[in-house]
Write a protein that binds this DNA or RNA. Structure first.
Lengths: 129, 129
DNA sequence: TCAATAATTCAACATTTATTGAGATATAAA
DNA sequence: TTTATATCTCAATAAATGTTGAATTATTGA
């Protein structure tokens, strides 16, 4: 994640419809949702409007797309989201632990508890699904 | 951090000069820097331009200001930055541990190592989603 | 009080961004 | 092949954003 990519990602996330789309796709999982389904969830936004925003998100690297029959499915680009947070935090925590600490605490949403003593990586994956 | 505040923060961070200012202030520490000093660091940007961007950042809640003599000092709003990441991650990790895990790993920038003995207990404490 | 310093405010302008509606493209089914 | 479905592309327009330069406010020191 370099500065320009971060700028593009922040710009993409600064628009209400797009932020809603990203949140929707993040919770939708890796399979994603079709453009039409997303449009319905966005208060029935027009198809051209959806295309515009989905293209912006894809351009910013925050979502990926694939065709499946007549539909095009969009999915959250999880690594890009993680990379963006990494970028932001890398800039935030230089010498200021008070910034990181509460974030790490917040990330204990049950899915990412890092444990240095836990050798088996997959075992430390405490899923609550 | 609600949606509108997050949108404002993302918008503020999506502009190159402002992103540079935030990064500069974050590394500058709690005392912050004067508007003039920041302007010099921004390739000698004009004072009105600096005022514009600093006002945007303050409006977005990402920096705070205080007058000291003739100068006005701007500081990073660390809690707001942490809150933004929290917001983004709260949206990102619902049911998808693979998103959070690498971020938490990246946050081991040396300043926010979570107490290993508390991992089991606190991590199982699920925040409301 | 007057001059110097530090920063802000404002109006004008240029640029960028978002929405709309019409039409084009791709796929699937009749 | 024809029709329907799903989505994209494009041009026009509206709205928001960033830069500039001049004028203004606040503070300090002579």
């Amino acid at each position: 994640m370099d500065v320009n990519r971060a700028l593009a990602a922040f710009a993409a996330l600064s628009q209400e419809t797009r932020l809603r789309i990203v949140r929707l796709l993040v919770t939708a999982g890796p399979e994603g949702l079709s453009a039409g389904t997303i449009g319905e969830a966005m208060d029935g936004a027009s198809s051209s409007r959806m295309s515009f925003h989905l293209a912006q998100l894809e351009q910013a690297g925050l979502v990926t797309s694939r065709r499946e029959g007549r539909s095009i499915f969009y999915s959250a680009a999880y690594p890009a989201l993680a990379g963006l947070v990494e970028f932001l935090m890398r800039d935030c925590c230089q010498g200021h632990p008070e910034v990181c600490t509460p974030v790490v605490a917040a990330l204990s949403c049950g899915c990412a508890a890092p444990d240095p003593s836990a050798v088996g990586a997959s075992a430390s994956r405490k899923t609550t699904m």
